[in-house]
């Protein structure tokens, strides 16, 4: 679910274009946008406090076989939330799970990991090397 929450609707649709068609679904709730109060911890590791709210869109759907899928994603993208909810439902079918993971989730996760790695590499390039000072000492 984290992978779908971090993906855009366009990214999910691009993966679905190469996958079998999603089964039809009915909307049970939403897609609707609301707020989640994000909490921090005092001192980073103490008791919780309310930091501020985050816009979140959620959706719940039911497939014809009765499977219910849920999705919550930060932001206001109703399409993303609905696609994520349908995918959550189809991923519950043990027979098809591996195929859906390979077609949609794993490529999205790989792209996200790539972006995270690139950011980590940029951060690493700004890590201060105190070599000069060490040799002077």
């Amino acid at each position: 679910m984290g992978v779908l929450a971090r993906a855009t609707a366009a990214e999910i649709l691009a993966r679905l274009a190469e996958a079998p068609a999603l089964p039809p679904h009915r909307r049970l709730r939403g897609p609707e946008t609301g707020l989640v109060m994000a909490r921090g911890r005092q001192g980073g590791d103490g008791a919780p406090f309310n930091l501020g709210e985050v816009a979140v869109t959620r959706c719940s759907v039911r497939l014809e076989d009765g499977t219910v899928g849920h999705a919550y994603a930060s932001g206001r993208d109703a399409r993303q939330a609905e696609l994520a909810a349908v995918l959550d439902a189809v991923l519950q079918d043990p027979a098809r799970r591996a195929a859906w993971l390979a077609a949609v989730i794993e490529p999205l996760a790989a792209a996200q990991a790539g972006r995270a790695a690139s950011q980590a590499a940029k951060a690493a390039a700004t890590r201060v090397q105190f070599l000069t000072m060490a040799t002077m000492r």
Partner: peptide, 13 residues
């Protein structure tokens, strides 16, 4: 519970 969940309002607002 999930299997029996049904829809709520068609247009909540």
């Amino acid at each position: 519970m999930s299997a029996t969940l049904t829809a709520g309002f068609a247009d909540p607002a």
